[in-house]
Design a protein around this nucleic acid. Structure first.
Lengths: 296, 296
DNA sequence: TACTAGCCATGCACAAAACGCATGGCAAAA
DNA sequence: TTTTGCCATGCGTTTTGTGCATGGCTAGTA
């Protein structure tokens, strides 16, 4: 039995389709069929129930699926551990879209300077997906905003940052010295899609003050929110890291008076996977960088 | 990476010698050398430090050794679980030499009648070895005499049986109605090697009564003890199961007066391994058979 | 009902991988 | 110095795995 066969099996088990699995594995469909056949022969039991439009896992297949998973994880961690020299290696990093473009580039650059042999793989996804992929071992570190479900993962808060009110220059509130949340209650809000946790941060902040923000428009990128605000479509709350990078003179940021809205940025990882020296270095770098970041 | 390669690696790691490992694996030595080379190439690290007279595991090799062990165990259990139909399958049973010939044959026959498809592999070894092999997953059930170290294994007492005094017919004690342990104190004993736990059972029984049996002769089989007793070399204490099967008329058995010496027979298995339905059936059979056995 | 599309298995020729045999090199033991 | 024990390598052969072309089967469609 070959480890490749296990990977083949896992792929078919996941996609429930030989043709698609063969494509993803970059082998021909007959080769994959035979690979699974050999496996079934060795185990003395069919692993799939072939149906005209798709395939299903048999009971034996179900069992083998979880065992193959274990074996492949052990092997992957073992390889990483054996090759762990503290310098080279791969780190898969991901962040949510409201953090990634404002926080990652400089973080990655500085880490890359310190560890030039490290290969950094960067991705962007929603909190839910990041958590799932962390648990499944597809990611080494995720950078998210709290709160997140902490089951099966380790969570470390990095820093808390303010959400500032962003206004077009000519907005009535722009002249006001102190702006309270109640002042913006009746202005329309520009928010991100529900998929983004920043929307949740903002609405929960408002809800605690018995205010219901009127979301006029929803978009999928923070820079788009900023632009729509500039065009007078409404106001919004923008994290400090995005404010810092904003070069535009056509909108202004104001710190809210009273209890300021904030969000907490945190690192998440799967503690059951092998933690390479490089990965621990990265997390250390991330801590130090975060500390410096809030003091800029 | 092939599972066979893992097995090859494990074998070399254990024997620390390619030539011998190749022999045990029934492949040629060059084939084994290359198999390990491929493994080392895939991992990017040498696993063995080749020395002129033997080989040593490198650090990477040590790590890989334990991981390969895990993987092979998962796989073995998984195969067993997949093929577990409650009827066919392999059970590896072992007992200590003072139990095996008197207890196993009938036990195995009755079980085999009930489960004709099961293949039973039987072995005999000392308690220490049986315990070790149980822990390592080389055995499914071991039948031993208490006490045994219980770490990492499950122990279930089956029955307690008396140890009877065996004497040649013409022995002075043969005429005595009630024989106490103090009566035999000054007669020489025929005992088994120290390796057998029955010797320990007997000497600890004597020790508790402040008696030191004088072991004149030590042998390695219980039937030999019986024969030596018959020839007048001394007396001994023999388990009930051996007494039952003894056909000879040239020696007699006497139950000791007072607190009778006994030993407790128990089953031992490794609860961390997969327990097939057939194996659970066997343990159930063992329980029932034991119960009937003591009442015969 | 006939037809089409989607999906997996099989026959076949070819390429890659693994094996055994014979042999070589090297260092410890004799 | 010779012998012995041990692992690696070269080479020819066999085994294994792969891709291509194709066939069979079934569900959905005209």
């Amino acid at each position: 039995m070959d480890m490749d066969q296990l990977a083949h099996f896992q792929c078919v088990a996941e996609l429930r389709n030989f043709t698609h699995a063969a494509e993803r594995l970059s082998i021909s469909q007959p080769a994959l069929s035979r690979s699974i056949q050999r496996l079934e022969e060795e185990l003395g039991q069919p692993l799939f129930e072939r149906k005209p439009r798709s395939v299903d896992l048999t009971d034996a297949g179900q069992l083998f699926h979880s065992r193959a998973e274990q074996i492949l994880l052990i092997l992957e961690d073992c390889k990483a551990e054996i090759c762990d020299d503290g310098q080279s290696g791969r780190i898969r990093i991901a962040a949510i879209p409201t953090i990634a473009p404002f926080f990652l580039p400089n973080l990655l650059r500085t880490f890359s300077d310190a560890f030039p042999k490290a290969s950094l793989i960067v991705q962007e996804d929603t909190t839910d997906n990041l958590m799932r992929r962390c648990k499944q071992g597809e990611l080494d570190v995720a950078i998210v905003a709290l709160p997140v479900p902490t089951k099966y993962v380790e969570v470390e808060s990095l820093f808390e940052e303010e959400l500032s009110l962003v206004l077009p220059c000519n907005h009535p509130l722009a002249k006001k010295k102190q702006i309270r949340i109640s002042d913006v209650e009746h202005y329309p809000f520009v928010l991100l899609d529900e998929a983004h946790c920043l929307s949740e941060n903002i609405t929960s902040y408002c809800r605690q003050r018995s205010i219901q923000p009127v979301a006029m428009e929803r978009t999928s990128q923070l820079v788009m929110v900023q632009e729509l605000v500039t065009l007078g479509h409404g106001v919004s709350l923008i994290p400090e890291m995005a404010k810092k990078l904003d070069q535009s003179t056509r909108r202004i940021y104001r710190s809210m008076h009273g209890m300021k809205p904030t969000r907490t940025v945190a690192a998440v990882w799967n503690p059951y996977r092998f933690q390479s020296r490089l990965l621990r270095e990265f997390r250390e770098h991330l801590r130090a960088y975060s500390e410096a970041f809030v003091q800029q």
